[in-house]
């Protein structure tokens, strides 16, 4: 009989940490590579004709970008570009997080309903899928228009909520489809086992279906988080809502002639937003899969 080695679990944890360090190193190497390529293209462009414009206005030097971090937002202002971008990124992060949470909650609720009642799966799933063919981003201004006419008593519907709604809408779909597959994942044997214990429907859900859905839920959460972030930034741009990094992107893009590096600071903000979302989901992943065999980790 093969007895499990007691050090096995510790070994697995160590490789996990090692893997983490290695992936961070790779990410850093990637950044260095991008910087080098950027400067290489610029350098090449000063000798030969390239299909892209490599002038300092279109492709500022990396150090100019770094320099731009500490420039004042407008001449004479105390706030630096970096501060403005950080605060805008945090605002967008809140909106994306709100949208993500709403989308995930709604997606899971919908998946549970669809799983529980075959009737709803047949009835709802086509609508869930069809919902994704509506180009909501394109309709963003319309949503804002509609939203402005909504009021929930003391709570006033602001454009920010419209952006959050769009993010939620985009996040919900991958989640509900993934969660539904996950809830349907338990083997026939597991289901019969629970039935033999006379498990109630809610016990079936909490003790079997939710835990079994984790391997499906984790990738769905990743897609949803990405959708929420992209949805937030794009919706910010298309609705023109103030405060977020999306708005900064268009504002700074208009200033390229005078301050070409400025817009890149906003781009870094948008990247940071994506990384924050990825980090959040990775944390969720680690938490949700803490009890599962390492192979089943997505």
């Amino acid at each position: 009989m093969s007895e499990p080695v007691s050090g096995k679990q510790r070994g697995a944890t160590r490789t996990r940490v090692q893997r983490g360090v290695i992936s961070i190193l790779w990410a850093l190497a990637g950044v260095v590579l991008v910087v080098l390529m950027w400067e290489a293209v610029k350098f090449l462009g000063s000798f030969i004709e390239l299909p892209i414009n490599t002038s300092d206005t279109s492709m500022p030097h990396v150090w100019t970008m770094v320099d731009a971090f500490s420039n004042p937002v407008v001449r004479g202002s105390d706030t630096t570009v970096l501060q403005a971008v950080v605060s805008a990124t945090l605002t967008s992060l809140k909106i994306a997080l709100g949208g993500f949470t709403i989308g995930v909650t709604f997606g899971i609720v919908l998946a549970v309903i669809m799983q529980r009642f075959a009737f709803f799966e047949r009835g709802l799933l086509p609508f869930v899928i069809a919902s994704q063919t509506v180009p909501l981003i394109a309709l963003a201004p319309l949503i804002v228009g509609l939203g402005n006419r909504i009021s929930f008593g003391p709570i006033e519907w602001t454009t920010t909520y419209s952006v959050m709604f769009i993010a939620a809408y985009l996040a919900f779909f991958p989640l509900s489809v993934g969660a539904l597959r996950g809830l349907q994942a338990p083997s026939a044997t597991s289901l019969e086992l629970m039935r033999s214990y006379a498990a109630r429907p809610n016990q079936m859900l909490w003790k079997l279906r939710f835990p079994s859905s984790v391997p499906y839920l984790v990738p769905a959460l990743k897609v949803s988080a990405a959708a929420a972030v992209v949805g937030t930034v794009v919706a910010e741009i298309s609705t023109g809502v103030k405060g977020g990094v999306g708005r900064l992107l268009i504002e700074y893009a208009r200033e390229t002639t005078s301050q070409p590096a400025k817009v890149y600071v906003a781009v870094f903000g948008a990247i940071a937003l994506g990384l924050a979302a990825a980090a959040l989901v990775s944390a969720l992943d680690l938490y949700l899969t803490r009890n599962l065999p390492k192979e089943s980790q997505a």
Binding site: T189, L193, A198
Partner: peptide
């Protein structure tokens, strides 16, 4: 309902989590 029997299958069907 009264749990008058226990059952075991060919697959152990243990819950990994």
């Amino acid at each position: 309902e009264k749990q008058l029997y226990g059952i075991a299958f060919q697959q152990a069907a243990l819950f990994d989590w």
